[in-house]
Design a protein around this nucleic acid. Structure first.
Lengths: 219, 219
DNA sequence: GGCTATGGATAACA
DNA sequence: TGTTATCCATAGCC
């Protein structure tokens, strides 16, 4: 190595140790990545310097957590959780609580605005998805009716002697979508959409709401 | 390297790959140990071969679990426990996902309606809470101004000989809330309320929306 | 961080 | 697994 071989023991000179750490760390990461790619291996490497600074790498597209979990499964090692189960569960449950509009006592006005925005985004997504589903059902039904019409026309033509005149009459038996485009679909599949049934925003104090609206318009 | 450099990409020939894995793994462990000793670093290395076999090493006298726990503390990484925990956590995380309007592909129309209703309820609660906060701030400010007025009156009475006449005049110096009841509060603490700035519900297909509204009114 | 001489890692072959 | 010709990581120095 370099200008002569060195003995493998702790380097006492701090500067030299830090330089060597920097260089060899780079080399080690390079070798690690090469091994991972060349041999299709899944690798996780964790390095704490003597000062406690962390350097880590793991095979993409995995995350270190996944490597560690796999390690646990392979060895049966038990990792102590940073916060143990109850707390973690609590955290997630509180997360849900947020979206249920519960336990808001500790939130500032800004937090509430952010939360409100999130709920609004979520609601928009949900409604878009509802719309997509409606569209699909509409399309399906339209195709179905079209097929039926086609079939009826064919049957009619087959059953009558004066074909051309009869078909003309049929045109007036299937104006279904032109007159009531969505009625039948709604009866098929759609519950009432609640957000169309009542005025959307009912703040508790209309006067405040009005003041705010006025304020916004003045801004 | 060896008899010529090689491109760093997966070695397709199985035998060659295994040989290379064996040799380079050894080399990597050696380098890892050297770095650990030379630079007094605490290192954990986990390698899964492409066949899933585990190879690991960590700085003595530590055990891998300790390195991993330290890693958790450093990064805040969340390692799932081997057994009961994962499912529970997943369930909760999915629960949150619902309220973020993500991953709705598997939901039926009825599910979406229910979710929408929940979001709507949550939003109402959030907005009520916002209002409560506004009310409180308003109340606080009102009290503050009132105190100031009281103090001013007292000072004024103290400073003048003809007390009664002066107090009467003061009445017209604090008509603050009667004229602009909320303006000052908004400047103090309130971001703009987004839901008052744009029409609330913007469905992607207005025509469908209209059909639905018509339908609801007919019901 | 860059340079350079040198020992070491290792790809190909056996 | 062992050997060997190459290429490279890197120690010491700037």
């Amino acid at each position: 190595m370099g200008r002569g071989k060195i003995e493998i023991k702790r380097i006492e000179n701090t500067t030299t140790r830090q330089v060597t750490f920097s260089k060899r760390r780079g080399g080690l990461f390079k070798k690690t990545k090469e091994l991972s790619v060349l041999c299709d291996a899944q690798i996780g490497l964790i390095i704490f310097s003597s000062t406690g600074k962390l350097w880590d790498w793991c095979t993409e597209p995995f995350r270190m957590e996944q490597i560690i979990e796999k390690y646990q499964r392979s060895t049966g090692a038990r990792i102590l959780e940073r916060d143990h189960h109850p707390r973690e569960t609590l955290r997630l449950e509180l997360g849900i609580q947020r979206y249920l509009g519960e336990d808001m006592g500790c939130l500032q006005y800004e937090d509430l605005s952010k939360l409100e925005q999130e709920l609004e985004n979520s609601m928009a997504k949900v409604r878009n998805r509802q719309n997509e589903l409606l569209q699909q059902q509409l399309e399906n039904l339209r195709r179905k009716i079209n097929d039926q019409e086609q079939r009826a026309v064919m049957e009619f033509e087959k059953a009558t002697v004066e074909g051309s005149k009869a078909v003309h009459a049929m045109d007036h038996h299937f104006p279904f979508f032109e007159e009531q485009p969505t009625g039948s679909i709604l009866q098929l599949a759609c519950p009432v959409l609640p957000h169309l049934q009542y005025p959307y925003l009912q703040l508790a104090q209309p006067n405040i709401q009005d003041s705010l609206r006025a304020h916004n318009h003045n801004n």
